[in-house]
């Protein structure tokens, strides 16, 4: 009898020790941002989207052209369709889905139209993949001659190019490689601000390393997304230095 009690007690103590360990709970699927949200409003054309009032709910179908790095179940995506482009700011997205957001992928996005420092974007958005076989990758539209004109903003967020630009200055956000690069380019006597957004290109990319070697007076052609921050401020993705 005594032996049975002793054995029982020993077992209980061992179980107690095991049970005292910290409980860890992995995030469940439900805690991760959903990637499949039914459109709450009808799908809009780009013109309808542009005509919609600020802070109104919008739904668009569009094609991924590029994106910034995924973080904390959010991702900022550059999208374009045949009729216009969109910036999806901090779209709810799981890490798994982020890997599928390759250029050309068609998605349906539901969110709210918003403006931040001149940039028109979709915020608080969710999305789902549209698997209808359709795909689209935009060709860079040359908008060099639109610089300084009021027409340029009509191409906001589109994949564009600027040719024959003159380098005026470059500066790293933190004064050294590793963060964004601010690039001032001149054309027809006026100066324009461009940015190599490190979350879009990474520091190992060709555009990042090439821009870092530029000198004032260099002639360059650039491609990128026509982002807006208190005026035109393209996020560039490619650069060619004239020989």
């Amino acid at each position: 009898m005594k032996k049975i009690f002793a054995l029982l007690l020993a077992a209980v103590m061992v179980f107690a020790l095991a049970a005292c360990g910290n409980e860890t709970t992995e995030p469940t699927e439900a805690e991760v941002a959903t990637d499949a949200t039914e459109a709450a409003t009808p799908v809009m054309t780009h013109a309808e989207y542009m005509a919609a009032p600020m802070e109104s709910e919008v739904t668009v179908e569009t094609f991924v052209q590029g994106h910034q790095s995924w973080w904390d179940n959010k991702i900022t995506v550059y999208c374009q369709s045949e009729d216009g482009a969109y910036l999806l700011y901090e779209l709810a997205c799981s890490e798994e889905d982020a890997e599928k957001l390759v250029p050309g992928t068609k998605i349906r996005v539901n969110g709210y139209k918003s403006e931040w420092s001149g940039e028109i974007e979709i915020v608080d958005g969710t999305f789902e993949f549209v698997n209808d076989g359709e795909t689209f990758i935009a060709e860079a539209l040359d908008v060099t001659e639109l610089l300084g004109s009021e027409e340029l903003i009509n191409h906001q967020n589109e994949f564009v190019s600027f040719k024959g630009m003159s380098v005026e200055s470059i500066s790293y956000k933190n004064d050294e490689p590793g963060d964004d690069i601010y690039l001032t380019l001149g054309y027809n006597g006026a100066s324009y601000e461009f940015c190599v957004e490190v979350y879009l290109t990474g520091v190992e990319s060709e555009v990042y390393t090439t821009v870092g070697t530029l000198k004032a007076g260099d002639k360059v052609d650039v491609e990128g997304f026509l982002y807006w921050y208190e005026g035109v401020n393209p996020h560039i993705t490619a650069i060619t230095v004239a020989q």
């Binding site: 009898m1 029982l8 209980v12 107690a16 049970a19 005292c20 409980e23």
Partner: peptide, 23 residues
């Protein structure tokens, strides 16, 4: 907070001691 399992085991331990006392 103690995990539920620990709370149950504490109850079992208490029960053991009661049994021992009774024995």
């Amino acid at each position: 907070a103690l995990p539920v399992a620990s709370k149950l085991l504490l109850a079992v331990i208490a029960l053991c001691w009661v049994c021992m006392g009774a024995y």
